[in-house]
Design a binder for these strands. Structure first.
Length: 506
RNA sequence: CGGGGCGUGGCGCAGUCUGGAAGCGCGCCUGCUUUGGGAGCAGGAAGUCGGAGGUUCAAAUCCUCUCGCCCCGACCA
């Protein structure tokens, strides 16, 4: 649909950000919506990306002693009742299985039959069912800590789904740990948050702010919730990973008790931490441009595509031999401990094919034609540069420098995202300025506006909810790296000793 | 669940007000010519106009009901 001179994605981010997001996903072939409302089909190009994220996270988890396990999809309703606050947080979005059979209906259709004695809730998260196991796994302080992670799907019945960002079913990992001491549990929760931050920054090239959630934004049932927050190109914040210190709340609910060194029985201290396919949404909205997604090399579904260019069959033969040998050579190179992922696309030559790969966000496009072969070179395009900004490079130099090149792209993307965040992070001390910052100029057709506002907050939930009510702006987190500073609350003017991050959020 | 918008080949849309043979662009298929920045020409396939009911000689168009999607709000990773 796009023509020369236009952007590959229409509308542009500026024109209609939400629609741009949908179109980018379609154009990049990452995923599509399914017949079931709120659910998505993750297509191979998107799933490869997810697998790379999974591999990176999984390795980091295991390096800290975490082991993988798997717990059931179905949670007995009675389990959820155990932790009142927790239930309240999720009750509104639970899918419930009530029958275990289908029978022929009089009209020829099928109807559910075989009513279950106890309804089963499809896990919205697994604290309760894992807690049930943990209660049996733990009896002594010698059994602790328990460090478990599971890769799974969960279901939260969403009212307003948005592909990757908020789907009714999504893929994630949920870690659950049990400790003998609260300090140790907090330390674990923070350690896992660090891993999320590393994943975001080093792999997804998404700069994040680590911090603590305010009481109102806390996970239901948690004592403390930590998160990483990232800015999207519409200047809204995305929570890309959370880690919770659950205190003894869930241990009490599930009966996770142990005998300590003083021979006394006490409830254990637990944590849970999760990150999901939502991160892919964040990736798209952090790096994508009006020509499609841009995949950071560390997690890219593929690093390079070789694009043979030829006129005749003889040329094709020569070009393909060259391309195959180059692909083989590249695949022998290791990039951050894994072989380079290289694909050859020998479909019809011409510009369309080139644009397909731009839209898919592949870091490197490697054109190979007779001219290049004659010079023993390739013609290279980088996704982090303008699409027309291509250059010739000797094959040997290319092969020798590709890993540095990918790292450079990775770094570029991160720095670009960081400078975007810096450009849209503002320190605000007056209430009027704060309200102006978060108010669109055109209320009917809000333009991209706002950003991260660093402002003082007195700590009162009233001020927080007033601002949320007025502007739809919430406190994303109280950053860990925060210089103490005296000021007055942006809401009520009362004294405050540190700034928090205000933003509209996904 | 409240407010707004939209459902017409794979994608994007026109046609609906004022009823009268289902169209356009892109994509797809075939052939020829092309080919290092989104190729050209010729031919072709593909739509029960979201669904059901009604009005009418005649419905994409009018009426009633219904389903779905998108945006804003509430909720959420």
């Amino acid at each position: 649909m796009t023509k020369r001179g236009e952007t590959a994605i229409s509308p542009t981010r500026e024109e209609d950000y939400s629609e741009w997001y949908q179109q980018v996903i379609k154009a990049s072939d990452l995923a599509e919506r399914s017949a079931v409302r709120g659910c998505m089909v993750i297509k191979p190009w998107g799933y490869a990306l997810w697998e790379n994220i999974v591999d990176a996270l999984d390795a980091m988890f295991k390096a800290t002693g975490v082991q993988n396990a798997y717990f059931p999809l179905f949670i007995p309703l009675s389990f959820l009742k155990k932790e009142a606050e927790h239930v309240e947080g999720f009750a509104k979005e639970c899918a419930v299985v009530t029958h275990h059979r289908l029978e022929k209906a009089p009209d020829g259709g099928l109807v559910p039959a075989g009513l279950l004695q106890e309804p089963l809730v499809i896990r919205p998260t697994s604290e309760t069912i894992i807690g049930d196991s943990f209660s049996r796994w733990v009896s002594s302080y010698r059994d602790l800590p328990i460090l478990i992670n599971q890769w799974a799907n969960v279901v939260r019945w969403e009212l307003r789904p948005r592909i990757f960002l908020r789907t009714s079913e999504f893929l994630w990992q949920e870690g659950h740990t049990v400790h003998a001491a609260p300090e140790e549990a907090v330390e674990r929760a923070l350690l896992m948050l660090d891993i999320y931050a590393r994943l975001a920054e080093e792999y997804l090239a998404m700069p994040v702010i680590k911090g603590r959630k305010t009481a109102s934004e806390r996970f239901p049932g948690a004592v403390d919730t930590f998160s990483i927050e990232s800015i999207m190109q519409d200047r809204k914040a995305l929570q890309a990973g959370t880690s919770h210190f659950l205190g003894q709340n869930f241990a009490k609910a599930s009966g996770i008790k142990f005998q300590n060194t003083d021979e006394k029985e006490e409830f254990a201290w637990t944590t849970s931490w999760g990150s999901s396919t939502r991160m892919i949404g964040g990736l798209i909205m952090t790096h994508g441009d009006d020509d499609g997604i841009i995949l950071p090399p560390r997690v890219a579904s593929a690093h390079a595509v070789l694009l043979p260019i030829y006129r005749s069959l003889e040329e094709k033969t020569d070009v393909m031999i060259y391309a195959e040998s180059l692909a083989k050579e590249l695949r022998g190179i290791r990039y951050h401990d894994a072989p380079l992922r290289v694909v050859i696309d020998d479909r019809e030559t011409g510009g369309v094919r080139n644009w397909i790969w731009i839209k898919k966000g592949i870091p490197l496009r490697v054109e190979i034609g007779p001219r290049d072969i004659a010079q023993n070179a390739v013609y290279l395009g980088r996704r982090d540069k303008k699409s027309s900004d291509k250059f010739s490079i000797k094959r040997e130099a290319f092969v020798g420098s590709i890993t540095q090149l990918l790292d450079e792209i990775q770094k570029n993307l991160f720095e670009r995202a960081l400078s975007y965040r810096n450009a849209h992070t503002i320190t605000l001390d007056d209430r009027d300025g704060f309200y102006a910052f978060f108010t669109p100029k055109n209320a009917d057709q809000p333009e991209i506006h706002g950003g991260f506002a660093l402002s003082h907050w007195c700590g009162s939930q009233d001020c927080e909810s007033k601002i949320k009510e007025d502007l739809g702006v919430t406190i994303r987190c109280v950053p860990f790296e925060n210089a103490p500073q005296n000021g007055s609350c942006i809401g009520c003017g009362k004294p405050s000793n540190e700034r928090v991050v205000f933003a509209k959020a996904y």
